[in-house]
């Protein structure tokens, strides 16, 4: 729970930062607020209409509505009661023994437990490795693009010279000048 709170807090702060960074003037927004409303509203209503069409047509059970759920449950109950009566009518001792010695197998114990990440990994590194590689190339292109579009190759670059810094001797960093001080 505490992780969730921290996470949401962090995301909220991140959003605030982004909003702060954006240079949006409130007046501009107000001016263009209703400009695209008619066409946007029309398209939205059309879209909603389509979605309602789907809901009416496709999002119903495949079973014919004549056989309702109530009917089907009754059917199941009838079957089970018949089964019970059959078992009871079996001669004396057999039915209880049958129930007593019934072996149950807990299949859930036998199944290998995998976390979500593990199961995704098992898919994505084996059968769907192509998707994984493709996604990695998308990220590579995003990186190249970000660098190309924002990196300034200026001429006067002050680069760090590792060799020069590492080979600098400690004793020679501060030197005592003999004679009069040199001001440049």
């Amino acid at each position: 729970m505490i992780f969730l709170v921290v996470y949401i807090g962090a995301i909220a702060v991140l959003f605030l930062f982004v909003v702060m960074m954006l240079n949006i003037k409130l007046a501009e927004i107000n001016e263009k607020k209703y400009r695209y409303l008619p066409i946007g509203g029309l398209l939205g209503i059309l879209f909603l209409f389509e979605i309602f069409c789907i809901i009416d047509n496709d999002l119903i059970a495949l079973i014919d509505s004549g056989v309702s759920i109530a009917n089907s449950t009754q059917l199941v109950e009838a079957n089970s009661s018949q089964l019970n009566s059959d078992l009871l009518t079996l001669d004396g001792g057999i039915a209880p023994i049958f129930y007593k010695n019934l072996l149950f197998t807990e299949w859930s114990e036998l199944a290998e437990n995998l976390t979500n990440i593990q199961s995704i990994g098992q898919c994505i590194y084996t059968y769907y490795s192509y998707f994984f590689i493709c996604a990695s190339f998308i990220l590579l292109v995003a990186m190249i693009g970000a660098i190309v579009l924002t990196h300034h190759q200026s001429v006067y670059v002050q680069t760090q010279k590792e060799l020069f810094q590492n080979t600098r001797e400690f004793s020679k960093t501060i030197q005592k000048h003999k004679g009069r001080p040199v001001f440049t």
């Binding site: 998707f131 493709c134 292109v141 995003a142 190249i144 693009g145």
Partner: peptide
């Protein structure tokens, strides 16, 4: 569908950068 979408995303990302080059 997934490979199609990934491929078209890769292509479009390259194109955005190329257009603003």
């Amino acid at each position: 569908m997934i490979s199609m979408y990934l491929a078209i995303e890769l292509q479009s990302l390259c194109f955005y950068v190329l257009a603003a080059f």
